[in-house]
Computed example of a mutant assay.
Amino acid sequence: MTSRSRATSFNAAADRYATYRPSYPGELFYAIEELAGIPLAGARVGDIGAGTGISTAQLLERGADVVAVEPGAGMAARFRKTLPDAPLVRGDANALPLADGSRDLLTYAQSWHWTDTTRSVPEALRVLRPGGSLVIWWNTSAHDVPWIAEQTERITRHTGATSPSLTPLDHPGAVRKAGLEGLHVVRRHLRWSRTVSLETHLGNLISHSGFLVMDEERTREFVAAEHARLQTLFPDELVEETYVVDLWVARGPGT
């Protein structure tokens, strides 16, 4: 299965994505302001790969002037239903439909790994004003929690797909791997959790591309087996999902 097939698979499952995916902790947005040196209130932000609008909504709540960019028809349709008054343009990170020097921040929530960094980095630098920042983050599963680590192994075996992993802050090759060589990059890890119903937890799992490109019968088999396992661990059917947000803030050379 190609990366493009996985990237476009979300369009057929936009409602599932919007219903079950987690949002982001408030601490993340304070960290963005600190590391970028730009208050969100009044900041001109391009939210790239905005999907159903999870990150866009949180940026708008903090007073940012946000233009969302989303390539997928299904995701864009759900975005417009959720945030009918928010500006949304169709396009992707590799060819941004935004003017030169027009944004203080460009944010990529859960979307940077779908870009071609040989194109998306120059595009980001073109659109950012001098002193602006490219801001990337992922919710990554906290694999130091034993049941989460075991579940991740089962998912990888079943789907053959791996999710973006948490690169150590001091990993010498992390910036190169992210395609951000030559930029001034700072990072932070932010741990948080949410407690959800077992149904929501399972819905979140199968909103990921590894399941979306899989035969529906195989997905149902996994969900049934996982439901039985987790009922034993969580008899009240309330699951505490623990995440670590991997936040990257990058500025262009000389800024």
Rank of each mutant, 00 (worst) to 15 (best):
L134E: 07
L134Y: 10
V135Y: 00
V135P: 00
I136Y: 09
I136K: 03
I136N: 03
W137N: 03
W137T: 03
W137Q: 01
W138M: 02
W138V: 01
N139F: 01
N139K: 02
S141A: 15
S141D: 14
S141G: 15
A142T: 13
A142D: 14
A142G: 10
H143E: 12
D144Y: 10
D144T: 13
V145P: 03
P146M: 02
P146C: 08
P146V: 09
I148D: 10
I148M: 09
A149F: 14
E150K: 06
E150M: 04
E150Y: 13
Q151N: 04
Q151H: 07
T152Y: 09
T152C: 07
T152V: 13
T152M: 04
T152W: 12
T152L: 02
E153K: 08
R154N: 03
I155L: 03
I155D: 00
I155C: 02
T156P: 02
T156L: 07
R157M: 03
R157Q: 06
H158G: 02
T159I: 00
T159L: 01
T159R: 01
T159N: 02
G160N: 01
G160Q: 01
G160H: 00
G160E: 03
A161P: 02
A161W: 01
A161M: 07
T162P: 06
S163L: 09
P164R: 05
S165T: 15
L166K: 11
L166M: 07
T167H: 08
T167D: 15
P168C: 04
L169K: 07
H171T: 13
P172I: 11
P172W: 05
P172E: 11
G173F: 08
G173T: 13
V175Y: 09
V175S: 13
R176H: 15
K177L: 14
K177S: 15
K177F: 12
K177A: 15
K177Q: 14
A178V: 10
G179V: 05
G179I: 01
G179E: 10
G179D: 09
G179Y: 09
L180T: 08
L180A: 13
E181R: 14
E181H: 14
E181P: 04
G182T: 10
G182C: 08
G182I: 04
G182H: 12
